[in-house]
C-alpha cells in the first residue's frame, strides 16, 4: 500500500463504509418514494370518489342543439409548436384548416399517438381544443391543445417533434353554447380544464359577451390561460391551492361576493360554463342555483372512438338498468349541470 493510499484511507471512509452509508441513503430514499406513491394513490382514490359523488345526479343531456354539428374528419396535421408550458404541461399547435374552420367551442379531438421508443399506443387520446385559429391567406388554420403528461399515451405524445405529423380526428362532441341574448358569462376552469372552456371565451369575444374566467390550479406559477384571457379580453380570477383560494367553499363565497349585484359590474352572469373536475361542476351548479342561471359542464371519460359507436364513454347519468345513459363523446362532453332536487 502506498503512503498516499494509507493517508487517504485514514481521512476517508472505507469503500465498505461508503457502501453501507449509501445503502442507508438508498433505503431512506426508497421509503420516502414508497410513502409518496401511497400518498399519491390515496389522493387519486379520494379524487375519483369525490368526483363521482359530486357528479351523482348532477348532469343531464343538453336540449337539442341549434347550430348543426360539424362533420368530423381525420387529418394528418403538421406539428407547428410543441413545447413545455410550465413544469407540468405541454402546448401542441397543429395545422388543420378543416378542423380549425369547423370546430365549435368546447369540442375536442382524438389524437392518434405514434409509436415511441418501442411502445405502441393503441387508442387515440381525447384532448380539448383550447384555441382555434382559422386559416388566413398565408397560413393554414391551426388548433391548439395543452395537455399534462400523465401516462403512457401522453408520454409518447410528448415525443412527437415539431415538423412531424399527427393524425387527428375531429371536431368531436357537443360543445358549449351561448343562448341568444347572453350578455355575460362566468367561465370556470381548473388545470387543463381551463383549455376545455377557452373556446367559449373565444366565442364570447366574437359576440361581445362580457366574460370572467376563474383560473384554478395548484399554484400561481402553473396557472394556464393568462395570456389567452388577456388576448380575448377576459377578466381573470385566480384561485390556487397554495394560498387556499381554490378551496371549494372559499371560492364559492368569493364568487358570490364578487357577483352580489351591488353595482351593474357585479351583476350575476347570465350563464356559467365549467371544466376541470366533478366537484367544480357541482360548485358551478350551486352558484347557478343561487343566481338562477343555467350551468354547462364539460366532463371526461375514457374513450376509444370519440364518434359515438363504441359505447365506451358512458356519462355519469343514472338511468333505468335496461336503458343506456348518455355518451360523453356524442351527447357531451358538455352537459347541463343542475343541483338535483331531493
Amino acid at each position: 500500500m502506498s503512503a498516499d493510499a494509507s493517508l487517504a484511507s485514514e481521512g476517508a471512509p472505507s469503500p465498505g463504509l461508503l457502501r453501507q452509508a449509501q445503502h442507508g441513503v438508498d433505503e431512506l430514499d426508497r421509503r420516502e418514494a414508497y410513502r409518496q406513491s401511497r400518498e399519491a394513490a390515496a389522493r387519486a382514490r379520494a379524487f375519483a370518489e369525490a368526483d363521482a359523488e359530486a357528479l351523482d345526479g348532477l348532469v343531464s343531456v343538453r336540449p337539442r342543439q341549434t347550430v348543426p354539428r360539424p362533420q368530423p374528419v381525420w387529418d394528418d396535421a403538421e406539428v407547428l409548436v410543441h413545447e413545455p408550458v410550465g413544469e407540468r404541461y405541454r402546448r401542441l399547435v397543429v395545422a388543420s384548416s378543416t378542423i380549425a374552420h369547423t370546430a365549435l367551442a368546447g369540442q375536442f379531438l382524438m389524437i392518434t399517438v405514434p409509436p415511441h421508443a418501442g411502445d405502441t399506443i393503441l387508442l387515440p387520446r381525447p384532448m380539448a381544443i383550447h384555441r382555434r385559429r382559422p386559416a388566413t391567406a398565408d397560413r393554414p388554420g391551426t388548433v391548439e391543445m395543452i395537455y399534462g403528461v400523465v401516462g403512457r399515451g401522453t408520454r409518447a405524445l410528448a415525443a412527437v417533434p415539431v415538423g412531424g405529423t399527427l393524425q387527428i380526428t375531429g371536431p368531436l362532441g357537443r360543445g358549449f353554447e351561448f343562448d341568444s341574448g347572453t350578455r355575460s358569462a362566468l367561465l370556470i376552469g381548473r388545470g387543463v380544464g381551463i383549455c376545455g372552456v377557452m373556446g367559449a371565451a373565444e366565442d364570447a369575444r366574437t359576440t361581445g359577451i362580457r366574460t370572467t374566467m376563474v383560473l384554478s390550479g395548484r399554484s400561481a406559477e402553473q396557472l394556464l390561460g393568462r395570456a389567452d384571457c388577456a388576448e380575448l379580453g377576459v377578466r381573470i380570477i385566480e384561485a390556487t391551492d397554495d394560498d387556499g383560494s381554490s378551496d371549494l367553499l372559499t371560492l364559492q363565497n368569493s364568487l358570490r361576493a364578487r357577483f352580489d349585484g351591488a353595482t351593474p359590474e357585479r351583476t350575476a352572469p347570465d350563464v356559467i360554463m365549467v371544466c376541470g373536475a366533478g366537484v367544480l361542476a357541482r360548485l358551478a351548479a350551486e352558484l347557478g342555483a343561487h343566481w338562477g342561471v343555467p350551468v354547462q359542464a364539460s366532463l371526461e371519460a375514457h374513450m376509444a372512438c370519440g364518434l359515438g359507436y363504441c359505447h365506451g364513454c358512458a356519462g355519469p347519468v343514472r338511468t333505468d338498468p335496461s336503458v343506456e345513459g348518455p355518451l360523453v363523446c356524442a351527447d357531451g362532453p358538455v352537459f347541463d349541470a343542475r343541483i338535483p332536487v331531493v
Binding site: D119, I121, L122, L123, R152, G153, A301, H302, M303, A304, Y309, C310, H311, G312, C313, A314, P316, T319, D320, P321, S322, V323, E324, G325
Partner: peptide, 29 residues
C-alpha cells in the same frame, strides 16, 4: 354491434382502458 333480445343498459364506468398488453373493454353491450 351485438343486438340482444331485450334492452340492456351496459356496464358501469370505466368501460374501457389501455394497458401495455392492449385494449381492455367491458362495454357490456
Amino acid at each position: 354491434k351485438t343486438v340482444f333480445g331485450s334492452a340492456r343498459g351496459g356496464n358501469p364506468v370505466h368501460r374501457l382502458t389501455e394497458i401495455p398488453a392492449g385494449m381492455v373493454n367491458s362495454v357490456g353491450i
